[in-house]
Amino acid sequence: MAADLSRLSLNQATTKHWSLREAVDGCARMGIPAIGIWRDRLAEVGVSAATRLLRDAGLHCSSLCRGGWFPAATRAERMARIDDNRRAIEEAAALHADVLVLVCGPAPDRHLRAARQMVEEGIAAILPDAIAHGVTLGIEPLHPMFAADRSVITSLGEALALAERFDSPHVGVVIDAYHVWWDVEVYHLIRRCGKRIAAYHVSDWITPLPDVLNGRGMMGDGVIELRSLREAVDAAGYTGFIEVEIFNETIWNMPGEVVLALMCERYLQYVAPA
């Protein structure tokens, strides 16, 4: 049977040193049908040029990263971040992205409860724009070790409860295996998510962890039960793309073509249906 890469997507973070054009061209050569785009690399070429690149290569945009980062010390800062999220929604709509990933942001001081309220208020503020543009907002819970500097939303249960409070098909959750694999409730929570799963990301947890932020491993190099998690996500009703998102200096320093070839091999070996 031919290798089935039909659900595979390259998150741009995995090939950090490639431009958007290089990443799109690499995916097209390898038969990878989708790409998750980061806004800083999008800004280098502009939305119109990026849209043409995707169209000419026949690639789909599985996600745009990132929105979110709502908490801030002053109202003016919070409003500026909401305005930036509105621009991100417009970009996601132009790219026909499946989801705008919300990395919700840390507390500006030590008040976690206040910061979590700011996240909810921020999503409420941008939801009308998301609905108007047909964009899905995906709340991504991060591993608790990122609570201090990247997100106050640190479990799948918390992200799901937040999404459910909006009762809108335009608000869902992003499940990243790296961030949720440890949770004793993860399979139960995935079932509860159901149609609210807006995206699924994979990498692996290496032991010992080489770096908090840039320590993700290639699938198969760590301890995560990746196929079991993918099966649970599928059983919950998710049929979308599976993004490989890896932050790792060693992988970034490898030739991009080598990374993509290894990514395809490991995806088939550890993630895709056997």
Rank of each mutant, 00 (worst) to 15 (best):
M1N: 01
A2M: 00
A3N: 04
R7H: 06
R7W: 02
L8A: 05
W18M: 10
W18N: 06
W18S: 06
W18V: 09
G26L: 06
R29M: 04
I32D: 07
I32W: 03
P33G: 01
D40Y: 12
V45G: 04
V47A: 14
S48M: 12
A49I: 07
R52Y: 07
A57S: 05
H60I: 12
S62R: 09
S63W: 05
C65A: 10
G68V: 01
R75S: 08
A76T: 14
E77Q: 07
A80R: 13
R81P: 05
R81M: 11
N85E: 08
A97L: 05
V101G: 01
C104H: 13
R110D: 14
H111W: 14
H111C: 08
M118T: 12
V119I: 15
V119P: 04
I123N: 05
A124H: 10
A125M: 15
I126S: 11
L127C: 13
L127M: 09
D129H: 13
V135I: 08
L137D: 06
E140T: 05
L142Q: 01
F146Y: 15
A148K: 10
A148R: 14
S155N: 10
L156T: 03
L156D: 08
E158I: 00
R165E: 02
V171Y: 02
G172R: 09
V173S: 11
V180E: 02
W181I: 00
W181A: 04
V184L: 14
V184K: 10
V186F: 00
I190S: 14
C193G: 00
G194V: 01
G194W: 06
V202L: 06
W205M: 03
W205C: 05
I206Q: 12
T207K: 11
L209P: 13
L213G: 11
L213Q: 14
G215D: 09
G217E: 13
G222N: 06
E225K: 09
D234L: 09
A235D: 12
T239D: 06
I242H: 08
I242E: 11
E243S: 15
F247G: 08
F247A: 11
E249M: 14
W252A: 02
N253D: 14
G256K: 10
E257I: 03
L262N: 07
L262G: 03
C264E: 03
Y267H: 00
V271F: 03
A274E: 00
A274C: 02
